[in-house]
Amino acid sequence: MDLRPLIEELNAETLILGHPRVLDRDYTCVFAADLMSDALAMVNSDCKKTLLVTGLQNAQSLRTAEMLDIDTIIYVRGKHPAQEDLKMAAEMEINVFCTSKTMYETCGILYKLGLVSAVNND
């Protein structure tokens, strides 16, 4: 599904657009956690169109996304990264959004819109 309607549904604020046309790009998977250890261990490497949903608004969420080749992060609970971290996100070409919704609400909305887990449970 295109990112634009997802962002609209989450009523999310755009903080960094690393790619100018990212809103028209298709995303299919979600990994949601505040623990980056879990993201590093569990995100399926085959899942190229993954959104990282987290309330951890420090540099390590950006570094984790960078290592996993995830290019879009949605921060929940209104968590705004610091300016220096946003600058780093721009340098990494990572797209950053922020929603005031909780992790639970955000995941519920994304699930309802058809996105699936980025973890391969097979």
Binding site: D34, L35, S37, D38, N58, S61, T64
Partner: peptide, 12 residues
């Protein structure tokens, strides 16, 4: 606080 310490590092 930094998002680590799940005990998954070395196995991963």
């Amino acid at each position: 606080e930094f998002g680590f310490g799940a005990g998954m590092g070395l196995p991963n």
